[in-house]
Nucleic acid binder design. Structure first.
Lengths: 179, 179
DNA sequence: CGAAATGCCCTAACAGTGTTAGGTTGCAAC
DNA sequence: GTTGCAACCTAACACTGTTAGGGCATTTCG
């Protein structure tokens, strides 16, 4: 599946965003500077501005790609399983653990929705909303639990000996049981 | 109640940390630079390093104070109510909404526990652990839900028309019901 | 009393950040 | 054959955290 978020960009901008993604995930958030990104591309920082308005636009492109991939992964997870909420939370956690720095970028600040590719945020949220039968309250509560678990895990806030698999199961069970 | 986190510091360092807190909360995270903090104090940035090792130490002091205040607020909340978990989650949300920038600072990155005032993290976590009767799994699940709700609210990730009070109640009910 | 130490501040500098103004090159189209 | 455009460049600005090294006043000690 091709990315509609990337297809909004010029070819050169696409290359820059993809390089940025590798840089972010491999070397961490501090490495995602315009100069280091440019160096990775073999050009100067100021040249990036020919292709992307500013760093916010670069980050918005990365976030858009992230949402698209989430939407795809979540749809597949539901499709492959008959316990959709469990499948979704597992996919949610997997996404975050496989690309922790992108996940942080996607969640740690208020979203500049005006800079995102249209619809990507909703597309990522749809599978969970479907899994709750359209119950927005329940979907939001499950999302909050999942995000809390994921980000606390990524930030190493749980004790090293915590059995997070168990905590996940207990949380999901709690949300399954109540109407 | 006097702060043990602050009492570990010299008087001048205390003043700097308190000024930093006001600056952070009033003008946001970008305002918490060594130069702007120094300007607020009427000195130069380099002078701050006489009193605090570096910016990380400053942030660790702020975080320690935050944990202490949480511990105090959470203990009071439990004391005043006979539905401790509901009281705790309300207190948790209130703390975050009253000082969103401090809350973000406290949670958005891995903790430098070696720089914190000893015991403050555990002290903030104790009331919830007590409220679950020592059930660490349940305490962690509730904490994850509460943090997720709070940080998604602070980052304006829910739709503007979302009824977050309802979402909170549903989530808490779910965690109350399951053993 | 004089000397030493301490507390607190300073200037100047370094390497890094995002960003802009203005200039150069090479290639494609009319 | 000139025009236009895409892609790059250098140089600069204002900011960031941080360090080296110096000054000055107050307090402590011999």
């Amino acid at each position: 599946m091709t990315s509609s978020a990337l297809s909004r960009l010029t070819p050169r901008a696409r290359e820059i965003v993809q390089t940025a993604r590798l840089l972010l995930e491999r070397e961490g958030p501090d490495a995602l500077s315009m100069r280091r990104l440019a160096a990775q591309l073999g050009i100067r920082a100021s040249s990036i501005y020919e292709h992307l308005r500013d760093k916010q636009a670069l980050e918005a492109a990365l976030i858009s790609v992230g949402f698209e991939e989430q939407a795809e992964l979540f749809a597949q997870a539901v499709h492959r399983s008959d316990v959709p909420i469990a499948a979704l939370t597992t996919a949610y956690r997997d996404f975050a653990r496989r690309q922790p720095n992108l996940y942080r970028l996607m969640t740690e600040r208020p979203l500049r929705r005006d800079l995102l590719a249209p619809g990507v945020e909703d597309a990522a949220a749809m599978p969970l909303l479907d899994a709750t039968g359209g119950d927005r309250e329940r979907a939001r509560a499950i999302w909050a639990f999942a995000h809390g678990m994921v980000i606390l895990e990524l930030n190493q806030r749980f004790p090293p000996d915590a059995h997070l698999d168990t905590t996940w199961r207990k949380g999901i069970d709690a949300f399954q049981g109540t109407p």
